[in-house]
Design a protein around this nucleic acid. Structure first.
Lengths: 159, 159
DNA sequence: CTACAAGTTGACGTTAACATGAAGTCAAGA
DNA sequence: TCTTGACTTCATGTTAACGTCAACTTGTAG
């Protein structure tokens, strides 16, 4: 066995850091490339990470699992001051609540499919009632200036 | 004004269907290309949609908002029989609950950032406690056969 | 009849977030 | 010293889900 432990007492190599989260090293390098993480120093060109990087990576992993993009996470994590961060986080907090609500709405739909006795559930009146609240969102309001709005993939309009 | 209503009584053009959901027509064509939707018929080459397509599109929109991919949605919607569909939907139901749980965990994290009085919240002990439960997930268990598992983007392992 | 809006296909471009491969450097055990 | 494994940079490939563009046909208002 070779390279069992990091040389310096409390410094991690990229491989060790990645192993902590079951990530590939190239993923961490990618995150570095987009400005999400930065190694504390280089030893012979090799990246060295400190314990605070573990927290950082944990936050990124968590954030990603919640559906945030790398750019969004960078914004939050690199906010220069309390005020800025609070504003950003509040925005994202709202987005999170929306996401949860949406997932729960989908869960209701899915649960009805599980319970619906009708063979082709698309003919189930109750199911259609659940689902049709989604339709007709912008049909009459479209002022003909905005060609289309995608609606999916929140984008920037609501964040 | 031109082309106010569809010719046949209860048939929609692709433009009308798209407008119902604020989608672009090319999105619906794309969904058709990947087998998610199929027009009822063609009238001189033009796609015609029936009311059941509205339900279908609504389900797709809903499913997408919950984070499902087009391929997953196709699986559910095209399940040949009740049993198959139930199995698929139960799988996705579990995935949904996981997703909700993850989003709520992220919300806890984000809410702590909002409440934490410490300037650099990454130094907050309580925050680190919340976040570090995420770390060290596979470090000692990795059997060295699986190079890495991505962990992010559920993929297929858990579905 | 003419314009024009809406529809058609097909090809190619975009964005996010990696994945993969090549070619070379470095550190340590046998 | 030789080998091996972890690391380096740089470049290119991949997947999902569209977006964009061009060149053409169709249907209806005026």
């Amino acid at each position: 066995m070779k390279m069992e432990r990091s040389p310096a007492s409390e410094a991690l190599t990229i491989g060790e850091l990645a192993a902590l989260f079951g990530l590939a090293t190239h993923v961490i390098r990618h995150w570095e490339a987009v400005g999400l993480v930065t190694p504390a120093a280089r030893v012979n060109g090799r990246r060295r990470y400190h314990p605070e990087h573990i927290t950082r990576i944990a936050m990124i992993v968590q954030g990603k699992e919640a559906g945030f993009g790398l750019a969004e996470l960078r914004e939050i994590l690199d906010a220069p001051d309390l005020v800025t961060r609070r504003a950003l986080v509040e925005r994202h907090h709202a987005a999170l609540e929306r996401r949860i609500a949406e997932a729960q709405a989908a869960k209701v739909m899915v649960e009805h499919i599980l319970d619906c006795p009708i063979a082709d559930f698309t003919h189930c009146r109750e199911f259609q009632r659940i689902v049709q609240r989604i339709a007709v969102p912008v049909p009459l309001l479209a002022p003909a200036d905005a060609p289309y709005q995608s609606r999916l993939e929140p984008g920037n309009d609501e964040l």
